[in-house]
Design a protein around this nucleic acid. Structure first.
Lengths: 339, 339
DNA sequence: TTGTAAGCGTTATCAT
DNA sequence: ATGATAACGCTTACAA
């Protein structure tokens, strides 16, 4: 069929079909002005040789783009980020393109992201979706000028004005805290993640704003920043509960923290209302009551990809910043309902 | 910097640096036999033009491969599959390559997978990782002969002998069921997913084998095949519990089914021991006791990618079928421990 | 050590 | 409607 395990080229097909390579090219690309008989001969040759057009050569010559979008993410925030990726992929596939992934390490910095972006740019991806880290992204502005559109997801990048899709961090937090306040809580602890992450700071700001407005004494409501994971969250909850005037409620700035809190509260059988940012799978089956800010990560990914394609078509439109709404969900907890 | 928003080419760099394109090429590829001064001139030119070598052209000319691996998956089995993908990505990145994703629809068939494979082959990916569906994959044998190595993950492909990495479906199931038997259960219902999925059949076979061996009457132990999701699993559990001689234990062939079972058992406060294939996040906080067969999806992805690279280096080795071990994990359930 | 010319597999131009 | 030829941006002989 194909000689020497080598892949057939357009020339091989042309020879076998007894036509010129241009005619083969026309058939492949569905140009209608080709004699039906020649079309058939080419079709047969393609089948016999198992010919697969080389998209590298095609993209190189035509400059038509590679039909691929790069996705740069972290890795840690798995559930959320992979969902975003899936959402983006839907749109990308709708445009007959593929997603090329490039996850950095868990502790990714903007430098690492920029290095990944450079790799992807060398592959001539048509655009970039980036979940930014804490650092500076100014370096990417130049790449964008040179024709690589990009959209940032979930977090706001520093050092660059760009298309961005985020969720309503402040609003969601305010609603969640408001809920606690309405239920009469006056000592509300705040468990916040790393200060370098902009959404953490936003959530903290939103929380404090509402608490002040509600006349809650911030001195009575400890704020712990830099809670990194489930275990440290659980430990923090333990400390809070052991303090002289323990809080009656806690707001957890992400789902890892929330889960850590659930563990500790469940373990102790403590009385502590838990509210948290981000819902997660199986939250409805957790033992303790929960008030969660649910974001739609899939929609976030979709929206970002759509925005990217819009940008691809209109390179000169003003930048957009899309804020997706969130909603509050409540779960009674499996233990409460059995009392 | 770059004229007309066009990306600079190697020629632009050569001109600006006052050298030949070959010298630029040498500098870019780190060939050491270049005059340090010229190296510096090239470096400066690269920086000023923001030059990024076109990997398409480079791969086309050198035939060195594209440093990309295609990943073809479903979409539904999100938690597991994305974890496999993450595992594969680790290895792929270690080889300085990227993962190109191509998820089919939830109800993907082998035809759809083959179409996706063709797309990726046209991009000249260096190899393929495939989570196969139920259909026939014979068509891919030809592509493999033409130089596209491939490894199948998690499930066994039909119609093609190939490198495969799976988990110990039979063994895991036997252990889980054995556990139920040891606890005195004699009426054990089996909730199995779609019959077209080979792992489901394997798990069912493993279960029945152990039950027979233990002298359990299969007539007293209903088997439900084709349980598609959480809701239908819950409904099935309901029916079983409402029957004249309800089972005292159930084995769920995947985590979706297990979760459906948990919901229904919890809702009714029923006495029904649950065992299931696949562990899942937060299983330890579920209300009811659980015996789960834990597989390491991340390791599955890693192993498959490693096998793919091994294949890339030794195209003529005999095919391998790697079976990853599983382990049983038990959770008491949050409600039980409070009684 | 450096540069010239050819060619990878396509598509685009322009005759025919 | 079809085909010879150049060109995309790079690497690889082969010279110089």
């Amino acid at each position: 069929v194909a000689r020497g395990g080598r892949r057939a080229t357009i020339t091989d097909v042309a020879e076998l079909a007894g036509v010129s390579i241009k005619t083969v090219s026309r058939v492949i690309n569905g140009v209608s002005t080709v004699d039906p008989e020649l079309v058939e001969r080419v079709r047969v040759a393609v089948g016999r040789l198992n010919y697969r057009p080389n998209q590298l050569a095609s993209a190189l010559k035509s400059g038509s783009g590679t039909s691929s979008i790069g996705f740069i993410g972290k890795r840690l925030s798995s559930e959320l980020e992979t969902t975003m990726m899936l959402g983006a992929e839907t749109i990308v596939r709708r445009h007959a393109a593929h997603l090329v992934t490039a996850s950095g390490s868990e502790s990714a910095s903007s430098d690492e992201d920029i290095a990944l972006a450079t790799e992807l740019i060398q592959r001539r991806i048509d655009g970039l979706l980036i979940v930014p880290s804490g650092g500076d992204y100014a370096a990417l502005a130049r790449e964008r000028e040179l024709g690589v559109p990009m959209v940032f997801l979930d977090r706001e990048p520093r050092g660059i004005e760009a298309d961005t899709v985020v969720v309503d961090n402040e609003g969601g937090t305010e609603q969640a805290i408001g809920h606690l306040v309405q239920n009469g809580h006056e000592r509300i602890a705040l468990l916040i993640g790393g200060a370098e992450i902009d959404v953490m700071m936003r959530r903290m700001a939103g929380a404090k704003r509402v608490m002040k407005r509600a006349g809650i004494l911030l001195s009575q409501s400890p704020t712990l920043v830099g809670v990194s994971d489930r275990m440290s969250a659980a430990a923090s909850i333990g400390q809070l509960l052991d303090s002289a005037t323990p809080p009656t409620a806690v707001f957890c700035a992400n789902s890892e923290i929330t889960i850590g809190a659930i563990e500790e509260v469940y373990r102790r059988g403590a009385e502590l209302a838990i509210a948290g940012f981000d819902a997660f799978r199986l939250a409805e089956l957790m033992p303790v009551p929960l008030t969660l800010v649910a974001t739609d990560a899939y929609e976030l990914g979709r929206t970002a990809a759509e925005l990217l394609y819009r940008r691809l078509e209109h390179p000169d439109r003003p930048f957009e910043r899309i804020v997706l709404p969130v909603r509050i969900v409540e779960f009674p907890g499996t233990m409460a309902s059995r009392l």
